Simulated assay, not measured.
Amino acid sequence: MSDRLVWRKSSHSNSEGGNCVEVAVTPAVAHIRDSKTPAGPGLAVPARTWEAFVAALRLSG
């Protein structure tokens, strides 16, 4: 994953270093990683898939 991506940490993450998810969304792809291991493995999904996932979470919450 590119270092030029702008990563955002989940609003549900805290400063205690718990389970944190970061996402960097481009027009075509959403990149998802664990903030504790930013150089480790991550996921890349189509941006439309990420948007549908977030929308479903909002409806269920």
Rank of each mutant, 00 (worst) to 15 (best):
S2V: 03
S2M: 09
D3E: 12
L5N: 00
V6S: 13
W7M: 08
R8M: 12
K9D: 08
S10E: 07
S11W: 07
S11E: 09
S11R: 15
H12E: 12
H12Q: 12
S13Q: 09
S13R: 05
N14H: 12
N14T: 15
S15N: 09
S15R: 13
G18D: 08
G18H: 10
N19Q: 15
C20D: 03
C20G: 09
C20N: 05
V21E: 01
E22Y: 01
V23S: 00
A24Q: 06
A24I: 01
V25P: 01
V25R: 02
T26H: 03
P27D: 10
P27R: 03
P27F: 03
P27G: 04
P27I: 06
A28C: 07
V29N: 00
V29T: 14
A30P: 00
H31F: 15
H31P: 00
I32P: 04
R33S: 02
D34H: 04
D34V: 03
S35P: 07
T37S: 12
T37N: 14
P38M: 08
P38R: 08
P38L: 12
A39Q: 14
A39L: 11
A39I: 04
G40Y: 07
G40E: 08
G40D: 07
P41A: 13
G42F: 05
L43P: 00
A44N: 01
V45K: 02
A47M: 05
A47V: 11
A47W: 02
R48L: 12
R48C: 06
T49R: 13
W50I: 01
W50C: 02
E51F: 11
E51S: 15
A52C: 05
A52M: 10
F53K: 03
F53L: 14
V54K: 13
V54D: 01
V54R: 13
A56E: 14
L57S: 11
L57G: 15
L57R: 09
L57H: 11
L59A: 15
S60P: 02
S60H: 09
S60Y: 07
